[in-house]
Design a protein around this nucleic acid. Structure first.
Lengths: 231, 231
DNA sequence: CTTGACTCCGTACTGCGGTACGTAGCGTAC
DNA sequence: GTACGCTACGTACCGCAGTACGGAGTCAAG
């Protein structure tokens, strides 16, 4: 049957029944019509939608933003130019989030590498480091706060290129994830897929911002060996 | 003067006066003793501490976590490794978020380039892009692509029956959820309960619409083994 | 010595994202 | 056929991280 009861739908989406009802009230998902007798029926599309909402929340979107995002999808008859405009606005938004997170990433990495990882806590540099960084942030804030970089991304599409590397030294999926993480933070990298089984990485990047050598360097920073594949 | 008033301290730390007071109530910073007459005095250490709190918040720590972190710093027995571990956990978290955001970014770009600014947008890949991530438990799960079999079922009173199956091949609760979803979309199934612990499924269905074989087939479609239990 | 800005402290309120609770009404199992 | 559990719906409440407000006290300048 296509019709799940609310509790089944909730279970399938790994949320609480109350959460489903809450999303209905918020207008995030459609409320199935109440039959004159019996229970309301939910379809798998709704379940998908709820999973999407949760996932999007986890990456930092608020319910309001998610609603807008979803409106882009379920608005086929709306003025397409408008949809496009909103999509571009969202893209800017996403890019800003990524930059913000990359900033955080760098900050955390600095902290971690500055910390010896053992010894008494009074020698732990984190408290000092965090506040020291604040000074740095002060200086660099105008750069990241001021969105001058909006211009460098005019229509949101740049000449992207996919590069493949053969990788030696991975011994589990975790290693693959590590490499993905290393690659993802190279400026100019849009997407990094690393397969442990196939021993290779495939990287979508802007060659002007990130050279092949940069990518290889990032991989080798993790202690792996990278050989560029000829295309 | 060495003792700052609350508003000066707040200004120095770039926060609201109320925020200082709030942190005091929370126990994040010490409350300077109220003199018998006059105002309380804040020192520069407190200001530093507040700055630290704000900075740590920005990197994604909650006030509760920050409190623990600060407690560690004043605990002579605490080990630096502990602090480091927390930072690494946060970093992992941030890395995962960045990767997911990049998927959304790709999806939005696809959407934007698919829409020339005119015409209908019927298809949205955002949903797929984000939700595709959490399908890692079972790759064999058929994607939501095959929703062709929409059968019109009118709501009559049908004789429902419960059937039990023993199931082999589940290795987590997620598998159980997958099977529930698979069963739920078999026409004629009213309710599906799958227990990972007990290795069995219990299905409430209309035997005229969904035979036991149909149910078994649905389960096996997910790569599991189903044996009907005798009643 | 008055005025205006600041402080102290408690309590209340905000927005977000849910959870819980209570009272009906369904519906399946024993 | 009744007990139990689920559903529908509305309303109330929760934790988080603050923010606002109100009344009384304090201080420093004019």
């Amino acid at each position: 049957m296509q019709g799940l009861t609310i509790s089944l739908a909730a279970k399938a989406a790994s949320v609480n029944v109350e959460t489903i009802r809450f999303y209905e009230r918020r207008g995030l998902i459609a409320r199935p019509p109440t039959p004159s007798q019996g229970y309301r029926e939910y379809d798998l599309e709704t379940v998908e939608r709820v999973r999407f909402i949760r996932q999007a929340q986890e990456i930092g979107f608020s319910l309001r933003e998610i609603q807008e995002l979803l409106a882009l999808c379920t608005d086929p008859l709306a003025d397409c130019a408008d949809v496009r405009t909103r999509a571009i606005a969202k893209l800017d938004n996403v890019n800003a989030k990524i930059r913000q997170l990359q900033h955080v990433q760098t900050a955390l990495e600095t902290l971690i590498s500055a910390c010896p990882g053992k010894g008494a806590v009074e020698y732990c540099s984190i408290l000092g480091e965090v506040t020291a960084q604040e000074m740095d942030c002060r200086k660099s804030q105008p750069a990241s706060g001021n969105r001058g970089s909006k211009q460098e991304r005019k229509q949101g599409i740049e000449p992207m290129k996919t590069k493949e590397f053969s990788i030696d030294g991975m011994h589990c999926d975790g290693c693959a994830n590590t490499i993905e993480a290393l690659l993802s933070r190279v400026p100019g990298v849009r997407k990094a897929e690393v397969s442990f089984g196939e021993k290779r990485a495939r990287v979508l990047h802007d060659p002007n911002a990130a050279s092949d050598a940069d990518l290889a360097a990032a991989i080798e920073k993790g202690g792996f060996k990278a050989k560029p594949n000829e295309e």
